[in-house]
């Protein structure tokens, strides 16, 4: 049984790690500020959640798991607030969204 849980948590955590890397690559790769925000929110949501879920399986039912749940709730309540405030500030400052035709390279409509 503990073997199964170990494997499951390993899978969850590596998936979370993969999503974090994907999000970071997206932040590096995306053109324009707003599009980068979308990539960063992959880290905040799926990456963080999967890693915390994996850690939850490792910790079992203990105080640490309660703290992990609080951590998860914190991310879930705060990350959209922070993202929105950043986007809002950028909007107020007149940062224009990136458009496909103005970009330098590799853009195609789907």
């Amino acid at each position: 049984m503990s073997q199964v849980i170990d494997i499951l948590s390993a899978l969850l955590m590596s998936a979370g790690g993969v999503f974090c890397v994907i999000g970071a690559v997206g932040v590096l790769r995306m053109p324009g500020f707003y599009t980068r925000m979308h990539a960063a929110s992959v880290i905040d949501t799926l990456g963080a959640s999967l890693i915390i879920l994996g850690l939850l399986l490792q910790s079992g039912f203990s105080l640490a798991s309660a703290k992990l749940v609080i951590l998860w709730l914190l991310i879930f309540f705060c990350s959209p607030t922070a993202s929105h405030s950043l986007a809002n500030a950028a909007h107020q400052r007149g940062i224009k969204p990136w458009q496909p035709d103005q970009g330098a390279s590799s853009s195609s409509k789907n």
């Binding site: 999503f19 995306m30 599009t35 590799s106």
Partner: peptide
Amino acid sequence: VSRLIVHPRLPISPT
């Protein structure tokens, strides 16, 4: 979104 990011041509159309 993850699929879009790893897509080699980055097929996004922000609006």
